[in-house]
Design a protein around this nucleic acid. Structure first.
Lengths: 256, 256
DNA sequence: TTCACCTATTCCGTATTACCGAACTATGAT
DNA sequence: ATCATAGTTCGGTAATACGGAATAGGTGAA
């Protein structure tokens, strides 16, 4: 019935405010904050001023609120606790060196892939990967990969809850077609995205398993690959899969 | 009387929990979390499970709680909103190139300097600056610099509230001596630290002003400088001050 | 197996307090 | 001066956060 039973509702509201702010660029006025969160101004003010006093928010000179340094501190503490970035770094860099494109490592946060770290190649600097940004599930190679390795019923429930937005003309939004694609990904052992998220952009993601054998991260090569034929692209695929395998075993995974 | 009037107390407690977790390395059990925060277990559980459901915390396999990916996302959003890191980057790098040591840019979060970004030099990689960590005020060049530019009565109130811990034998903890040092820093236009925070480590910080003429950041050169005489060190000082001036004018600051 | 001793979690009555409409203040534009 | 918009404060009440105590789950020793 009520999935928020036993949860602190004022805290949930505060988190809603943080979410609204993190989804917008730049500060938001109290009024728009109230509008977007759906809570009355006075409520938002109580929560926001509390967070301001503790540094989670900062108030700009024009009175509007924005995320504060404190959250930056928390975030840095989190990334320090992820030993993955130090372990993954050499693999990211050698992958970039092989492919000449950028490589990214991603982990799953609930229903969305989040980029943790990246390496850029000299020829790949045209696109700078954005760290800490939630990516869509259905039209990125990371997202599709991570869904593909879930159980079928979890896939269904996730697909129901997430919006399958049409980002480009190439974005696949049909649920049945997506389900077939997921099965194929699992067979192949990697996922591909071709202009489904951003026009012209292509990417390959390969699974990274931890010592318990669970899919924890996706290793991805991303670039425009404009003058690349299918043979050359299969080299990129193989390199990504290989580095992901090596990273997996570095994490203690042993295949069967 | 009550400085928390109008503030949401359950939210304050939740933030206390985040603070406790960010100050400890690794996850904490509910019991120790309750102990360190001073709130009863059931209260902590209500707050922690709420934050877990929203991704601000994650629960490890042994049941203990740790900071979650969501905070990493917030933190990344904050650092993206700091246009400073992209502006400061070239100055950080040329400063490192000149001095051969690491350089750091720092901003003030309430009563503590927090490192935002850094550049490492080939010969300076021995020490990796830690991003997002609160530094002490009284024994780092950043901290002393930022205090020095505050009004005298604010300095007194800050010194009362912060603990002047003795980090090394060289740490100055006497309030009167510190006050004299602050005056000197303001005269010179830069701050020096010599093994007061970590043995052997030396650093120089120069002020960075914004277009409103307010001290917003500290630009710092930090290293061991083992075989460096005072003439050579004054070159480091001058380079730091110069780059800080250039960064200030890049931010729109014009001296008098 | 049983017991003991850890955990995290749930329960529930009540005192606390979060809530939100409305009033207020400040600032800037017309 | 007036209006419009901003953020902030106030206060009474319905709601709920609180925390002690009971429960459930898990691990290791006897």
């Amino acid at each position: 019935m009520d999935e928020n039973k036993g949860k602190v509702k004022s805290l949930l509201k505060a988190i809603d405010i943080l979410d609204v702010l993190s989804q917008s660029r730049g500060g938001l006025s109290l009024s728009t904050l109230s509008e977007r969160s759906g809570y009355p101004k006075s409520t938002v003010h109580a929560l926001a001023s509390t967070m301001r006093d503790r540094g989670l928010l900062r108030q700009l000179s024009d009175g509007s609120y924005d995320l504060g340094i404190r959250l930056f501190e928390y975030g840095s503490a989190v990334s320090r606790s992820f030993d993955i970035s130090s372990i993954a770094r050499p693999y990211l860099e050698s992958l970039s060196a092989i492919t000449g494109a950028n490589s990214v490592i991603t982990m799953l946060d609930g229903h969305h892939p989040v980029s943790i770290d990246y390496a850029v190649s000299a020829s790949g600097v045209q696109i700078m990967p954005e760290i800490g940004v939630k990516l869509p599930l259905h039209c990125t190679s990371q997202g599709k990969l991570m869904i593909a390795y879930l159980s079928d019923n979890r896939v269904k429930s996730i697909l129901k809850r997430t919006s399958v937005r049409q980002y480009t003309p190439h974005t696949v939004t049909d649920t049945e077609r997506l389900t077939k694609i997921f099965a194929e990904i699992r067979n192949l052992g990697y996922a591909i995205e071709d202009g489904e998220y951003k026009v012209g952009l292509r990417s390959v993601s390969a699974p990274v398993f931890d010592s318990a054998g669970e899919l924890k991260y996706a290793l991805t090569t991303v670039g425009f690959f404009r003058r690349v034929n299918s043979d050359e692209f299969s080299v990129v695929i193989r390199a990504t899969v290989n580095q992901a395998k090596m990273l997996s075993s570095a994490l203690g995974y042993q295949s069967e």
